[in-house]
Write a protein that binds this DNA or RNA. Structure first.
Length: 366
DNA sequence: GATAATGATTCTTC
DNA sequence: GAAGAATCATTATC
């Protein structure tokens, strides 16, 4: 149905012909007044419809004429009503759009990560990656706070940008609404049409907003992966922890394979995880074998320390260094039969090290 | 900046 | 599944 038809359609074109009549002052001259009115309305409509075919100057002149036409107010109201109906039919097809699943996913993620929604006060509980293998509770705490600080930064940037977008959207909407209201004085614009326009603007801005959310999610993902990658966050163990582990290693050189129970005890003493203890012993055994000469010096050093500690204990010196010699570890775990002492090697590279019963280290040496 | 040391990961073997 | 071996990536030292 074209515009011409719509204007004459029984249900739409004759929307409110009283309006047209209101603009008519009845001074049309002779003949059938009804026919004359129809003729005149037809002429005016024809002029409106063909206005776009004319040159700019002609169109401007014609527009001026039409604006000054005595039937203009009446026609204006009719056109408004027709347009309103047309707009409503368009609206009905556009409303009730389901929420974008992608946007929902992004929103959920941002809420879960503590970027959107209420701030997770001091906790970052659910969202903080667990740097399990980073070594030590202190380091862990530092990493947590570091992660929180960076997440807070992302959160702040996100909210600032979001605010900017919302402000820009509101400003632009207000501007367009004002413009349309201004124009509604000269062309038929209904409030519902303005509403529709506002909806379109909001939709455009929500697309930008989605991009912002997408970028924020990516930033959070990168942050998480960086903190979760333990290799990047490798920290050397504390001097004390290394000493405890090394001392245990050399004191059980004949069989440096601590049981799970011992590993747990060592982990507790060193403030590291059991898997870190396992890693440490794994590395230590390999590197010990690879560089046995240097390791021997280290072994002698620890043996000397142990010897002095043992002699102090024997004379009942209460001020003797306790160090790792105070392990409450089951001695049967790691020591070979016949090795009663804590340190099964002597200072001369004697029985247990390296020429002693350290079969594990001799198995596959070149 | 080069190098060594070191903690962690991955793959293989048993 | 644990241990060995190779390797990676970071940290410490000079």
């Amino acid at each position: 149905m074209d515009d011409q038809q719509r204007l004459t359609h029984p249900s739409q074109g004759q929307v409110n012909m009283q309006n047209v009549m209101q603009g008519y002052d009845g001074s049309y001259g002779q003949g059938d007044p009804s026919e004359q009115r129809k003729q005149e309305i037809g002429d005016v409509l024809q002029q409106i419809m063909t206005i776009t075919d004319q040159s700019l100057d002609e169109a401007q002149a014609r527009k001026h004429t039409l604006n000054c036409h005595r039937m203009k107010p009446a026609l204006f109201n009719v056109l408004c009503e027709i347009k309103e109906k047309a707009c409503l039919s368009i609206r009905n097809t556009q409303e009730e759009e389901p929420p974008d699943p992608q946007l929902m996913r992004l929103d959920n993620m941002l809420i879960a990560e503590g970027v959107a929604g209420p701030e997770k006060g001091g906790a970052s509980t659910a969202s903080t990656p667990s740097p399990a293998a980073s070594g030590g509770q202190t380091d862990s705490a530092i990493e947590h706070s570091d992660y929180r600080a960076k997440l807070a930064q992302i959160r702040q940037i996100y909210h600032t940008e979001l605010e900017k977008y919302e402000q820009a959207c509101t400003e632009f909407t207000t501007h367009v609404v004002n413009l349309l209201r201004e124009q509604s004085r000269t062309r038929p614009i209904q409030p519902k049409e303005i509403e529709r326009m506002v909806g379109i603007i909001r939709k455009k801005f929500s697309a930008i907003e989605m991009q912002l959310k997408q970028s924020t999610c990516e930033a959070v993902m990168i942050l998480r992966s960086r903190f979760l990658d333990a290799r990047r966050k490798r920290r050397n163990f504390t001097k004390n922890a290394t000493e405890i582990l090394t001392e245990y290693f050399y004191s059980h050189l004949s069989n440096p394979y601590p049981s799970e129970e011992v590993k747990e005890e060592l982990a507790r003493k060193c403030g590291i995880s059991v898997s870190q203890v396992s890693n440490w012993f794994g590395n230590k055994r390999i590197r010990y074998k690879k560089n046995i000469g240097k390791a021997q010096e280290e072994a002698n050093l620890y043996a000397a320390k142990a010897a002095s500690a043992a002699s102090s204990q024997m004379v009942g010196d209460p001020s003797s260094p306790t160090g790792s010699s105070n392990y409450s570890l089951p001695s049967s775990q790691a020591q070979m039969p016949g090795q009663g002492g804590m340190y099964p090697m002597n200072l001369n590279g004697g029985e247990s090290y390296p020429g002693g019963d350290n079969s594990w280290e001799l198995e596959d040496q070149d």
